[in-house]
């Protein structure tokens, strides 16, 4: 039996990957179901390996590409409509820089932007379109993974059963700081708006030198806005300043967001290692899978596949930086 500690995105994805490969697994999490206690609950759900490359290391793009198919296969609900990257006219230099630092895009003019997103017609003269990217609703995806595992007979325990497992996979996110000294928290803040006056089919990123924003449609006029990146492990409530910045950027994208209802605000701390890349660490019978940073949905399938490969063949995969048996 392989026991997985933590039923956030990392734990659920490893469990699903191992179960799909025929391994017996069980999960341990003090909380009964995915919810606001875990930082993946607050995620944007963008599957955007090309866009992320602008500020992330190369492995993020390479391993992130496979995530779209993985989520479609294991959870469903993946929207393959690409990503639109826009900027206000005075920040046009930001668009050129973003284009230089990423691939998988084509330049779109005002008419092409209007053809993609009718509600943005006449508002932007230039943008970048990343056709191969996708998005999902992270809360629905987490719940789908859990439901499918339960349907397969996988046990979810609130406290660890007495019988010691053969292998323990620690996927507790930031809570694993008690064992992983170089793990730190990076605060992110988000909000959820209802704005029936605006329809978007795909995530839109608004580049801004100070306040970069992304907005992800969740359907039925609901949008998720995110997300700040602050070197702090403070969780809890969003600050007035972040709220102000996120909302003013949304208002710049479309003034109708000024009339939106604020359904929800939230903040949490992402687990990250110093290079902001994930790690697998083997210590005896325990494997740590952690440090997904802002790429929980994008990189968890690759990390899970590496963990499974390691368990099956003993190889030391790319993200494994420590092996002591």
């Amino acid at each position: 039996m392989i026991r997985i500690l933590g039923a956030g995105v990392m734990g659920l994805v490893i469990a699903s990957e191992l179960a799909a490969r025929g391994h017996p697994v069980e999960l341990v999490d003090p909380e009964p179901a995915p919810g606001p206690h875990g930082c993946s609950w607050w995620a944007g759900g963008m599957l955007a390996p090309h866009c992320e490359r602008e500020s992330a290391e190369e492995p993020v793009e390479r391993h992130g590409l496979a995530a779209i198919d993985w989520w479609d296969r294991h959870a469903g609900g993946v929207q393959r409509n690409g990503t639109l990257v826009l900027t206000l006219n005075r920040d046009r230099g930001e668009l050129a820089r973003f284009a230089r630092r990423s691939t998988g895009h084509r330049t779109v003019d005002g008419d092409q932007i209007a053809a993609l997103e009718l509600d943005l017609a006449g508002r932007f003269a230039a943008g970048l379109f990343y056709e191969a990217e996708a998005h999902l609703d992270p809360r629905a995806a987490l719940s789908a993974l859990r439901d499918r595992l339960v349907a397969q007979g996988v046990a979810f325990h609130r406290t660890p059963p007495e019988a010691a497992p053969e292998t323990l996979i620690d996927a507790r996110g930031l809570a694993a700081r008690d064992r992983l000294a170089d793990l730190r928290g990076v605060r992110g803040e988000m909000l959820v708006l209802r704005c029936p006056d605006v329809t978007l089919s795909r995530p839109v990123r608004l580049l801004h030198p100070r306040i970069p924003l992304y907005i992800v449609p969740r359907g039925d006029g609901v949008f998720m806005l995110g997300a700040t990146m602050i070197e702090s492990d403070r969780r809890g409530i969003v600050t007035a300043r972040s709220l102000l910045e996120l909302l003013s950027a949304a208002y710049a994208l479309h003034p109708a967001f000024g009339e939106a209802e604020v359904l929800e605000t939230g903040a949490d701390a992402r687990p990250a290692f110093p290079d902001n890349l994930p790690r697998l660490r083997r210590r005896g019978a325990t494997i740590f899978a952690n440090g997904l940073y802002r790429h929980g949905f994008l990189l968890s399938p690759a990390v899970a596949a590496m963990a499974a490969d390691h368990l099956e063949t003993g190889i030391t995969p790319e993200f494994m930086d420590e092996v002591s048996r």
């Binding site: 730190r184 928290g185 605060r187 602050i230 070197e231 702090s232 492990d233 403070r234 600050t239 701390a269």
Partner: peptide
């Protein structure tokens, strides 16, 4: 300022 007291690791 922005780290609000939670920035010790950084």
């Amino acid at each position: 300022r922005r780290e609000q007291g939670g920035g010790q690791d950084f």
